[in-house]
Design a protein around this nucleic acid. Structure first.
Lengths: 339, 339
DNA sequence: TGAGCGTATGTTATCGATGCCATGAGTAAC
DNA sequence: GTTACTCATGGCATCGATAACATACGCTCA
């Protein structure tokens, strides 16, 4: 009964209520900004909170309200650390603004089992929604079960039960890049794409194909990398062996670094012999040699937009497009030698 | 009273108990792997879980057990997306393995107020521990209050009340880099450091200074960047104006890209005129031109080690060092021209 | 003036898992 | 054969916030 004994327990709403001389319910209302609270009462409650150092218990809130105010973000460990990082920041910023926490799950590889496990893990954590920034190669029944129950937004265009899709127009990126090369006077444009499992990769490739088709050019067979500089290097070696290649559209900046190195090593200069356009505009793009001409991607904004779409509620199943493909023209492109 | 009506509520432990013909308490024990459960009973429980699709409610668990099984990770939005990304992945992997979720908070800039807010936010979410991967420029009383109550590991060597420190020996990185240049025959090594608020930056600089001192060389004044390629470019322009510079130790790969470009533009070739060593070994380091000689940093491992240290409990206040600075020698370094 | 309504507040039951204590069955020891 | 102890299990209170319902007051308008 030592009233003065050190208090080990964190103060609770009841403690605040006692201090402020109101009921716990009123404290709850005051703190959540319910309209029906006397301003004076609210002031007293806030003062009490401050005085006793109250910090609200989100577990209790989650239990009684049934909502955790947490968003689960699913990422892929491989596949460009830049985009991952930027998407994460965007998601977190938008979520934080709306009072949501962000819990992450990274999957090591594009594998259905790993994906199921990650979704499960986040679902067990009680997330209120998912942002999936990984291509859903194939959607299993188990995954559908989860995304049917929990609102989901996918960032790469893959569809699953109940999920909404943040449509980023990657075809446009492909078109813009290809058109830039054609505008410079190139008569043919080769392509090194990302892995075929990625919808981004497929869409960029489609944009490239369409653009060539519109110009009446038959597209050469596309080569495929895995987003890594290393894979770009390998595909670049192949390109270097093909005569008459004057322009290549590479699906990511990191691969482009590899491609350029491979071309250089074979005596093909960029941009004098071969022009390169890529996609992403990472911080280092301006510091390649030559600096890369590239289609800017605003990953931060994509992340934020995904959260906005997720939280907006089920008012519409409408997809939404946020991209505006803008080209950063630098020094990796030039008119072909013979004009 | 329509027993057959669709069940909207998620199944709870009580439902599992009913199905398996045991008490809820036994279900709880069975699922958490308590030793005192009959294997047969356990089997029945697991079968019931499977049958009715039970998914445990982490909010309820957190409330009654007082622990959320969540780790809060604090990151800085600027300052190298590669390290951020890799640290995150490492933290998440190690946490996941131990049954912990990871909740992130990114702060936009090195600002005490932002830091306080982020820690608060995570504390409100009820995280069981912090991994702070941001330099704590100055530790405020409010921050101390939080880190005193909640176990904390800092990844960059800054100290706060009750926090343990994962000591990564960045001095060693500085020494290794500098020594490599001296071994090649350079008589003087310049340095472009990271921002002074970062302990990493300070430690690398110290390592560089010590190494020079040990060789009886007086260190030139260090230049300071902000980790970005852009800042490397600006400092590189300054370096380029100084005659007789033959070797530079740059505190990060990204800055090194900028430095090399600046030197090139001023007609100084790398590595013929100037050798460059940096730190990090990001994926693109091998694809710079020239490919960068750089000290490898295993950020993923740092992240994982931080979690291990955090979860190991308070058995010791001992710091722990996990770094082994290993040099990736590539083409940005060479003996000085005059031998 | 009293029915009706809106506002501010209190009371109680509830969310779902777990901590603590109790119980009964089996078994080893004296 | 009683004591003592372990193992498997159940009952109940509890964590802290909130939803749902209840109450009290004051105002408006017929």
């Amino acid at each position: 009964m030592t009233e003065g004994a050190a208090r080990l327990r964190q103060p609770s709403m009841a403690d605040v209520a006692r201090t402020a001389g109101v009921s716990a319910q009123t404290v709850s209302r005051a703190l959540r900004g319910s309209p029906n609270v006397n301003p004076e009462t609210k002031r007293r409650v806030l003062a009490a909170v401050d005085q006793i150092g109250y910090r609200f218990n989100s577990a209790a809130r989650a239990l009684s309200s049934g909502r955790s105010h947490t968003i689960g973000l699913v990422l892929l460990a491989s596949g460009g650390y830049y985009s991952r990082s930027a998407v994460t920041a965007g998601v977190e910023a938008a979520a934080g603004e709306a009072g949501y926490a962000v819990s992450i799950a990274t999957i090591a590889a594009l594998d259905t089992g790993l994906m199921e496990r990650s979704l499960s893990k986040l679902a067990d954590q009680g997330v209120d929604g998912f942002v999936i920034a990984v291509p859903l190669i194939s959607v299993t029944p188990k995954m559908e079960d989860i995304t049917r129950d929990i609102p989901t937004v996918t960032l790469d265009g893959s569809r699953t039960a109940g999920a909404r899709v943040l449509g980023i127009d990657q075809q446009e990126a492909g078109r813009v890049a290809t058109q830039h090369l054609l505008d410079l006077g190139h008569r043919q444009v080769w392509h090194i794409s990302g892995p075929d499992e990625w919808i981004e990769a497929r869409q960029r490739r489609q944009g490239w194909q369409e653009c060539l088709a519109a110009a009446g050019i038959e597209a050469p067979p596309p080569l495929e990398g895995d987003w890594s500089p290393d894979s770009g290097y390998r595909q670049g070696q192949i390109i270097a062996m093909i005569p008459d290649v004057t322009a290549v559209f590479v699906a990511s900046d990191e691969m482009a670094f590899g491609v350029i190195r491979a071309l250089r090593e074979r005596g093909r200069s960029v941009p004098d012999d071969v022009s390169i356009v890529s996609v992403d505009d990472i911080a280092l793009a301006a510091y390649g040699s030559p600096p890369l001409t590239t289609v800017r991607q605003d990953f931060y904004r994509y992340g934020a937009a995904a959260v906005a779409l997720l939280l907006r509620g089920d008012d519409a199943g409408v997809d939404e497009s946020v991209v505006t493909a803008s080209l950063s023209v630098r020094a990796s492109t030039a008119p072909p030698r013979s004009g």
